[in-house]
Design a protein around this nucleic acid. Structure first.
Length: 560
RNA sequence: GCGCCUGUAGCUCAGUUGGAUAGAGCAACGGACUUCUAAUCCGUAGGUCCAAGGGUCGAAUCCUUGCAGGCGCGCCA
């Protein structure tokens, strides 16, 4: 939390404690004090509704409570210009202008550390995301999931969690067999054999390319061998190649994983059977109609789920149970799963599984990322995975650029569907918020470039002792410092809610204040003291923009 | 039929533990470049927060019902 904010909250705490002791109610530690920045300046720099929210507990009128809090409130070394009660019982704080300098000092002392905090206290968290089946290239929807997972991981890291990023490879099950068969048929077609290609197989262009590559490597060696004999080979060839491309596409998108976890490895280690045994021992599993069922209804799911089919094969869900058990065995305190929203029907059973495995429901947090509607100039682009007609992530990144794609993916709540218009995304104009933010950064860099040319040097090594900061008195300058001070709270909010979109919105707001300020005021002027002060402000803004863009995985260009 | 998500300005969307007069971008209209980058800024206009009830000192936010859209409902993955 920003120093100023925590100081005010601390003072409020003390003031309220007295009040509560007097009434013998509600332990202070259960009290969460909200301190907002009001919309209108008449309501002060900060405001709290605490008197209003205490009315129920204290059974007194809000105005009375506010008055009493105010009476108990310490001055805090001249922190406040004035504090007043307004409206139905809000307490409004007007802060002395010099108080804002602390934020600048904190930023400039160690720019990379600003916003970093220790909410996580080093607890291990795993973020699992993308996890697309290796049966085809990543499409734009995966891109949104990739950006979301990557940035949530960044945020958690910045907030003091020990984060691991993992990709779960669904390399087992019949879809992989289908993949192998698809390759086999394409291979035969290349060899001139009349093969009827089944509908429900993967028929995209990429399968033809793969078949050609395979043919190049092995020639016609397999043309007279039965499908059964070569299926495994074809499946592995296709799976490995597609996975390699997925890695490349993610790399180009700036997304990296610490671990790639193979579903097949669970089968090989017999982990699924062991998991089911464990659940059985705990009484969560029963036999019915020849199949083995997990009693997920005991934890709120709408029906029980099969884990071993009557034919003896385990289900995908059984593998997922084993997988999540494995994750917990690796010592993660919390698991974050990022799923496409089309899997929402799966959420309850997975949460049930986690509980049956002896963990808390809250130890698994599932983030659903809604679908992306791809448009070109307002017209929907037809997409069909089955027919292999879709725009890949790679194509989108190649066309609109990584920065624009990432920023647009992240500028929406993940649980809200996203219209992604290729024409808008690649427009280098005011339609495109990413350039608005980047432009501010480039402008700031340019100021320092000019300053250097003019021989103005800003020494930040002893920023604490700079006396020029008191020259920052314009309302817009105070607004900027106030906004810079909010950054750590924005990150904390992101880590609490596992939502990244606050950062783009914050950036936009900060940058908008700066652009406006820039147009009205000159940083480099005739007055050396004022110039020094404004350069400090400019430097702090630049650092926070850079810092935030870094979390988003978007570059901060020095020139545009 | 059941479940989950969504419904806020012409369009795309913020508004996260219920707070003061509901915001932003785009689009529309009118202005500002001999200055540190005009990819910018300033101004104007734009609203039944899907609807109806409920509860609260106070609701876009919580509860109930309805309407509309998306997605999902397999011993597939």
């Amino acid at each position: 939390m920003t120093p100023l904010r925590s100081r005010i909250i601390g003072l409020l705490h003390d003031a309220i404690k007295v009040l509560l002791y007097g009434h013998g109610q509600l332990p202070t530690n259960e009290l969460s004090i909200e301190l907002d920045i009001p919309k209108v300046p008449e309501h002060g720099d900060y405001a709290t509704n605490i008197a209003l929210s205490l009315t129920r507990h204290l059974k007194r009128k809000p105005l009375e409570i506010a008055r009493e809090i105010l009476k108990n409130l310490k001055d805090g070394n001249g922190l406040f210009q004035k504090v007043e009660i307004a409206g139905p019982g809000f307490i409004n704080f007007f802060v002395n202008p010099h108080a804002w300098h602390a934020t600048l000092v904190e930023i400039l002392r160690d720019p990379g550390a600003y916003g970093r905090q220790d909410i996580g206290r080093g607890r291990k968290v795993q973020v699992e995301f993308v996890s697309a089946n290796p049966t085809g290239p990543l499409h734009i929807g995966h891109g949104r999931g990739a950006a979301t997972g990557d940035v949530i991981a960044n945020i958690l890291q910045a907030c003091g969690f020990d984060v691991q990023r993992e990709y779960y490879i669904n390399d087992a099950g019949n879809q992989m067999d289908t993949l192998g068969r698809s390759l086999y048929y394409r291979y035969l077609q290349i060899l001139g054999q009349p093969v009827e290609f089944p509908d429900n197989h993967y028929q995209g262009q990429y399968m033809l390319d793969l078949a050609r590559d395979l043919h190049k490597e092995v020639g016609s060696r397999y043309q007279d061998i039965s499908l059964d004999e070569v299926l495994d080979l074809f499946t592995r060839f296709a799976g490995d190649r597609i996975l390699a491309e997925i890695r490349e596409d993610l790399h180009a998108f700036g997304v990296h994983f610490d671990a790639w976890f193979s579903e097949r490895s669970l089968h090989e280690q017999n982990a699924i059977a062991r998991t089911i045994e464990e659940l059985k021992a705990a009484g969560h599993v029963y036999e019915h109609d020849g199949a083995t069922w997990f009693r997920s209804t005991a934890f709120g799911d709408e029906k029980d789920r099969v884990v071993i089919r009557a034919n003896g094969m385990s289900t995908y869900f059984a593998a997922d149970l084993a997988y999540h058990r494995n994750k917990f065995e690796r010592g993660f305190h919390t698991l974050v799963d990022i799923w496409g929203a089309d899997h929402h029907g799966y959420v309850e059973r997975m949460l049930a599984g986690v509980q049956a495995l002896g963990r808390e429901r809250s130890d698994l947090r599932i983030i659903l990322v809604q679908l992306v509607n791809l448009l070109r100039g307002g017209v929907p682009v037809a997409m069909s995975t089955r027919a292999g007609e879709f725009v890949t992530l790679k194509e989108v990144v190649d066309e609109v650029g990584r920065d624009a794609a990432r920023f647009l993916f992240l500028t929406r709540r993940s649980d809200s569907p996203l219209d992604f218009d290729l024409e808008v995304a690649k427009m280098q104009s005011n339609d495109n918020p990413v350039y608005y933010v980047q432009y501010a950064h480039a402008r700031l860099c340019s100021i320092f470039e000019v300053a250097r040319e003019r021989g103005i040097h800003l020494d930040l090594s002893s920023v604490e002792s700079l006396t020029s900061l008191h020259r920052l008195t314009l309302p817009r300058e105070v607004d900027l410092m106030k906004m810079l001070g909010e950054y750590p709270d924005v990150l904390a909010n992101c880590s609490r809610s596992l939502e990244a979109h606050f950062i783009p919105y914050y950036l936009h707001e900060l940058v908008s204040l700066f652009h406006s300020y820039y147009n009205q005021n000159r940083v480099l002027g005739d007055d050396p003291e004022l110039t020094e002060a404004r350069l400090c402000l400019a430097a702090a803004i630049r650092e926070v923009i850079k810092n935030a863009l870094e979390l988003l995985g978007v570059t901060a260009p020095e020139r545009m």
